[in-house]
Design a binder for these strands. Structure first.
Length: 275
DNA sequence: CTAGCTTCCTGATAGC
DNA sequence: TGCTATCAGGAAGCTA
């Protein structure tokens, strides 16, 4: 479910509720979500650690711990992270509960169980999680027309597929690739090698803008976040392209069309995003 | 190297 | 109503 704006929203909600708290104990209901190290070591190593803060890299969430290790999490499709009172009812598909020193609990819920945890020791490298392969952040100053052209202009793949490639720009998923391409007025299936200079320019502008706009629009109070169980980000009402198949384009009124690009459903305005 | 397919899961929804 | 088929915002692993 979550892409960069949603992961960032989660970080902003969870960080102030975990920083400064230590982990009293952990119960792992489903060891399959622990990728590294094994679930037992994960549990014994994390117990007693104190959270110092959180960061985000692409769609990865990172809890920093006082001993220099990092608790890394990727939510994939349906992962949810909640800080709850201890007596909060247990959601179905709760796979991990950490008891915190302030009496609250940090819980991980994931219907489809695609999400993954890693506990990296002080000197453990990002290669363990794959974070080392991530490209630049959408708000990185290095994201320029020249950067995009250098990385992509010789590739024949559809521009939409390249936006989803985490090794070039990190954090864009199916929703925001549709939003970015609509904002930039580019046909999703257009091969990178035939994009015009004007199109590269619009992409370089719209990638950071759309992501920043969505992060802003996702803003939510901790109360509403908990009430929505960490999965209702109200991120559908403000979208302009994704899921709008058949609905009129806000810009020109033309109905959105749907197609499959690289195996992913894509919505686009046939007038604003011409072939 | 890339392209394309499968896999990991459950639940919501569409169609009959 | 009840059944089955299809699809879902991600990414790794596999084959060709």
């Amino acid at each position: 479910m979550p892409e960069l704006p949603e992961v960032e929203t989660i970080r902003r909600i969870i960080e102030p509720q975990t920083a400064g708290r230590s982990v009293v104990s952990i119960s792992i209901h489903n060891p399959k979500i622990i990728t590294f190290p094994d679930a037992d070591t994960f549990e014994s190593s994390l117990a007693g650690c104190t959270f110092t803060g959180m960061s985000r890299k692409g769609k990865f969430l990172i809890f920093h711990l006082d001993n220099g290790s990092r608790l890394v999490l990727h939510l994939r499709m349906t992962g949810q992270l909640l800080v709850t009172p201890p007596d909060y009812p247990e959601e179905k598909h709760t796979h991990l509960i950490a008891e915190l020193s302030d009496g609250k609990q940090l819980r991980y819920i994931d219907v489809r169980r695609f999400g993954r945890f890693w506990l990296l020791g002080k000197d453990e490298a990002d290669t363990v999680t794959g974070m080392d392969k991530l490209g630049i952040e959408p708000d990185d100053e290095a994201l320029t027309v020249d950067f995009l052209k250098e990385k992509l202009s010789k590739r024949r793949k559809a521009i939409k597929e390249m936006l989803l490639d985490q090794t070039i720009i990190a954090g864009i998923g199916n929703i925001y690739s549709d939003e970015i391409l609509h904002a930039a007025g580019i046909y999703p299936e257009k091969p990178c090698n035939i994009l015009t200079n004007a199109e590269w320019k619009r992409l370089a502008e719209q990638i950071p803008q759309v992501i920043a706009w969505a992060t802003e629009a996702n803003e939510i109070t901790p109360e509403d976040y908990l009430a929505g169980k960490g999965k209702e980000y109200r991120n559908t009402p403000f979208l302009r392209a994704y899921g709008h198949s058949g609905k009129p384009c806000e810009v020109c009124g033309t109905p959105f069309e749907k197609m499959i690009v690289g195996g992913r459903s894509s919505c686009y305005c046939p007038k604003c995003q011409k072939k």
